[in-house]
Design a protein around this nucleic acid. Sequence first.
DNA 1: CGGGCGGCCTGGAGGC
DNA 2: TGCCTCCAGGCCGCCC
Length: 274
Amino acid sequence: MPELPEIETIRHALLKHLPGKRIDKILVRDARLRWPVDENKLNQLLVGNEVTTIDRRSKYLLVRLQKESTLILHLGMSGQLLYITESRPFEKHDHVIFYLDDATELRFRDPRRFGMVDAIAPGGEADYPRLAKLGAEPLDESLQAKALYERAKKLTRPIKNLLMDANFIVGVGNIYANESLFYAGIRPDKPAGDIAAKQWPVLLDCIQNVLTEAIKKGGTTLNDFVNSNGEGGYFQLELAVYGRVEEPCLKCGATIQRIVQTGRSTFFCPTCQR
DNA sequence: CGGGCGGCCTGGAGGC
DNA sequence: TGCCTCCAGGCCGCCC
C-alpha cells in the first residue's frame, strides 16, 4: 500500500542505480495490469534511451529518459520495483522486466496487479489522463493552507475522504489520512466544509509532518511494501492510530475507535479528535 | 457538479 | 487439511 513516503523512498533508492543506464530490452511477461501494458509503445519510446533522472508526481514514478520520453509507473496496492544485479529466476508476479546496458535489471512485481506501467511520449505529459486532474502536492513549499480551505469550505463530505481524494491533495492514502487527522485533533467524519479557516494551517502542518517523518523512516511496511533494496520501512512502529482499534490513545489513554468510511477503515481517538 | 459505491485483484487470516 | 469468506485499498467508472 505505497503512499507518498513509500514512493519517495523507492525513488531515492532507484536514483542511486538508474541514471546513466540505458534500457536495452523490455520483457512483458504479463500485460494484465490496472490497464493493459502496451508493449509496442514501451519499446518505441523507451528502448535505446538512457535514464536521466526520476521524478514523482502523486504516487506515480516518472523515470525520465533521453529524447524526453518518460516511463511512468504506479505500484497500486502491492507493487514492488526490484533492482537486480545478478541473475535471479522470475517469480510468479514479475510482470515487466527492464534490461539495462550493464546487465542489471529493473523488475516490476505486483501480485494484485493494481499497478501500472506505461510510456509517455515527449510533450505528452500535460495531456496524460492519469496526471491531468491531480491535486496539490502536500510537500510543495508554495502550497497555501488558505487555498485548501477555499476549495473545501463548501464541501459536505467527511474530511478524511477529501484528504484521500487525489484530485484534492495527492499522496495521502488511508494510513496517512488517519495519522494526520489524529495529530490535527480533527474527527475523520467531520464535514470538510466545517473545518475553520484557522484550522487548515494546523491540518496541513500535520500532513506535512507525518509525511516527512515517514519518509525519514523509509516508509511504512505493513503487508506488501518493500523498497528497491528489498528492505521494509520502519514508520509502522510509530503509527498513532492506524490499525490500533481498541488500544489506548497515545495522548490521552482513551480507546481508539474504528469506523468504516466509504468502505475504508478509519481509526481515531474520540476524545482527542473533535 | 458533488459524493457514494462497485469492481478490479491476490494472498493471508480466520472460521468450521 | 481444505474449503469458504472476508479483508486489505488506489483508482476509475458508474450512478444518483
